[in-house]
Design a protein around this nucleic acid. Structure first.
Lengths: 227, 227
DNA sequence: CACTATTCTTGACCCGCATCAAGGAGGGTT
DNA sequence: AACCCTCCTTGATGCGGGTCAAGAATAGTG
């Protein structure tokens, strides 16, 4: 119920995608944006829904996935604060190829297609920024395709654990950002296989697992791993 | 050895990506373009090379793939006349995540990054066109990820055969656009498995195979197929 | 705190597809 | 025609990881 307009402007200005935009452009976007507060488990949109804009995560956590037949699903992405989704679909006539669901109570901003197109029209360096953003996403998908096609489950998991490693050399400790089932699906594994691989890595002394907390005593050693 | 300038302008203007561009924008692009005539088997660029522009296929056939360890490779895309590649990499600082190789003697145009950026600067509706282009590509990759994760080999192959079907209902006959090994890799299958699945489908009366020629007597029946 | 619901683990089993290993079948070339 | 080369097919075998089923651990909830 409180007025959040002030927040919105600041939040938008700090999104990676919008960081270099001028005040007036931000103002345009604020006009076209609205808040969405999905509860845990709530769907933001379903596969097949039409797109009217895109979303930015302010806080909480969202997953993108496609449904498979018997209730199973394949997670494509797990998104946190500062990340956005749904941009690509905006530029086509097609409906969403995935669905979006909140993994926790969240706060999203929805920015309307019109507002964004106006911003692009107004600031042509912004178009380049958007192109770069989409390109990075495309690059990520290429990486996924590569991983799915020619890496084993264990290799994908190791790759995933290692991407939290930001250039550090020695030990590393962090929390998994979501439930193990969700991460398993993200890596195209069943929860069972995921669990077994974690166990193997732990037995090999490459990691320690305590609930969602992962400790990597020797990053380099884990990087060498490859059966 | 003849001067092809006239051709280039016409060719560029007829690429899907550039179709709505004005004469002066096309002229800009022509300035920044050069011809490349790779022979069959020749590499256009390697995985890890830096990008200085992007490529359009005038005639011939190009495959994009990533190398795997023991000489095997995974084909990501098979491109023919009118299609382009390498756009996304241009907008990032990263090197090519895949390599490109000619499947036949080909003619490509290479359009420099500068020329394209100038065109974007000059015509801001063109930026939207590029965004749409990248979005479609992204959509295609999402589709691939979906197929790899939750479809069987046979389902992927059926899906592939059916995408040559342009809304027709009855029978359909066409040629595979590349060697069976290349298509197998595109579908994330070994040539052996590919061959076996074709055989199964033929035995089930759903298709007829004669070399690279495929006949689908009943498109609808094949679409129903799903083990 | 008991009580239920998830989430996670572990074991037994199985199946799709890769791998390894020989052949066919064209298709140029000389 | 005989040769070779690449592409494709066919069979035998094995492994990665999925599936099914049952507990264990953890987290919510009244």
């Amino acid at each position: 119920m409180p007025n959040h307009k002030l927040d919105v402007s600041e939040i938008l200005a700090n999104l990676p995608l919008f960081r270099q935009l001028g005040r007036d452009d931000i103002a345009l976007l604020v006009q076209g944006s609205r808040e969405i507060r999905p509860q845990k488990g709530e769907f933001i949109f379903q596969k097949g829904d039409p797109s009217h804009g895109f979303y930015a995560v302010v806080h909480g956590q969202i997953k993108l996935a496609f449904p498979s037949l018997q209730g199973a699903e394949k997670v494509v992405a797990i998104l946190g604060p500062g990340q956005s989704f749904g941009e690509a679909v905006m530029f086509m006539e097609k409906p969403y190829p995935v669905f979006a669901q909140a993994l926790a109570d969240s706060l999203l901003l929805h920015i309307s297609k019109q507002a964004l197109f106006a911003a692009i029209e107004h600031d042509n360096s912004f178009a380049r920024k958007m192109l770069a953003g989409l390109s990075i996403r495309l690059h990520g998908l290429i990486h996924d395709v590569e991983a799915y096609s020619l890496r084993s489950g264990a290799q994908r998991l190791v790759g995933y654990l290692l991407q939290n490693e930001n250039g550090k050399d020695g030990a590393l400790k962090f929390e998994l950002p979501a439930s193990k089932q969700v991460i398993a699906s993200r890596l195209n594994l069943t929860p069972e296989t995921f669990s077994r691989i974690l166990h193997q890595l732990a037995e090999a002394g490459l990691i320690q697992v305590d609930g969602r907390s992962i400790t990597i005593p020797d990053v380099e050693a884990l990087r060498q791993y490859e059966p």
